[in-house]
């Protein structure tokens, strides 16, 4: 296995894996955002807040069940469902009346939601840092390529990412609801004319997208300190990923997340103080050469 180290120094290799596990989170969140943008045409700024709510819900569920393995698995299921419920209420209560408005209004509306969600989180969970324990099963390290210590939990993330991608692809491309949603994205009125309740299709797509945000939040919770303001940077990153990959394109979101996550983790090696500059620079370069994103967008 030593030949790998001669090509890639261990430091680079470990940063690549750190970047890949970050990519998983970014992909899960931004694929939900991409889905909502592609089908409903809502630039959902509140998506980051839902991610934060997912993380906080994971904290609560895990705490209620004693912080052990059962708590973790229940949090992983319960938190996305809780977020889905919140988003369903928001969609049926507010968004469904405003689909015809221009993007600017929708963007500001979702921003209003993110402000409200931010303060609601402060009311419910308080402003302190929270931490979710890594479950027993995933504690410790594995040695990659014979000698590179890598957290087991991050390895778990690397497995979850592709699973989510495949499931999402199956839902969008192989199920009836996915086909209707794709049709509605292209021509909403026509889909309504053949007797399909477009409003509910939109609601389902919105809820699935938000569920992904909640899943991202629940997955990231054991690796970071759960705190207010974790939504602010993430939502910008998710938007940039979606734009870079092509609006509404799931694989575009994956590609964008890969570029973003890897350029961030490798950038830190090059210039530790300003490592975070690199992904933004990558977005600018991509958009300069491909103004509508890397892959085909649904718009």
């Amino acid at each position: 296995m030593d030949f790998i180290y001669t090509i890639f120094p261990p430091k680079v290799l470990s940063q690549v894996f750190v970047g890949l596990s970050r990519t998983t989170i970014l992909f899960i969140v931004s694929s939900g955002l991409s889905l909502i943008l592609g089908v409903l045409r809502i630039p959902n700024v509140a998506h980051g807040s839902l991610y934060m709510i997912g993380a906080f819900m994971a904290f609560t569920i895990s705490k209620v069940f004693g912080g052990g393995d059962i708590g973790f698995w229940l949090a992983l299921i319960g938190a996305p469902l809780g977020v889905a419920l919140v988003s369903l209420i928001a969609e049926r209560g507010v968004f469904q009346f405003l689909y015809e408005r221009e993007h600017l209004m929708l963007l500001l509306l979702t921003f209003a939601f993110s402000l409200v969600f931010g303060d609601l989180v402060k009311i419910v969970w308080g402003a302190e840092y929270k931490s979710v324990p890594v479950p027993q099963v995933f504690q410790g390290f594995v040695n990659l390529f014979g000698g590179l210590p890598f957290p087991l939990y991050n390895l778990f993330l690397l497995i979850v990412g592709p699973i989510v991608a495949v499931v999402l692809w199956l839902i969008v491309n192989k199920t009836k609801i996915g086909k209707i949603a794709r049709a509605a994205a292209v021509d909403r009125e026509m889909v309504g004319a053949v007797g399909i309740n477009v409003s509910w299709v939109f609601a389902i797509v919105f809820v699935i997208g938000c569920l992904l945000a909640g899943l991202g939040g629940a997955l990231v919770a054991p690796t970071v300190s759960v705190t207010l303001g974790m939504d602010h940077t993430l939502i910008i990153e998710a938007f940039l990923i979606v734009i870079m990959g092509g609006l509404g394109n799931i694989w575009g979101a994956l590609l964008g997340a890969l570029i973003f996550g890897l350029s961030q983790s490798l950038g830190i090696l090059i210039w530790s103080q300003f490592g975070i500059v690199f992904p933004y620079a990558a977005v600018i370069v991509v958009l300069l050469f491909r103004p509508t994103g890397l892959l085909k967008s649904t718009w």
Binding site: V283, I284, P291
Partner: peptide, 25 residues
Amino acid sequence: IRLSKLYFAMLQISLGSLVWIIVYR
């Protein structure tokens, strides 16, 4: 300026975040 509407907005937010990061860091 070459991009339109939402793409313009996003590229601008990206550039602006770059400036923010530089100021912040």
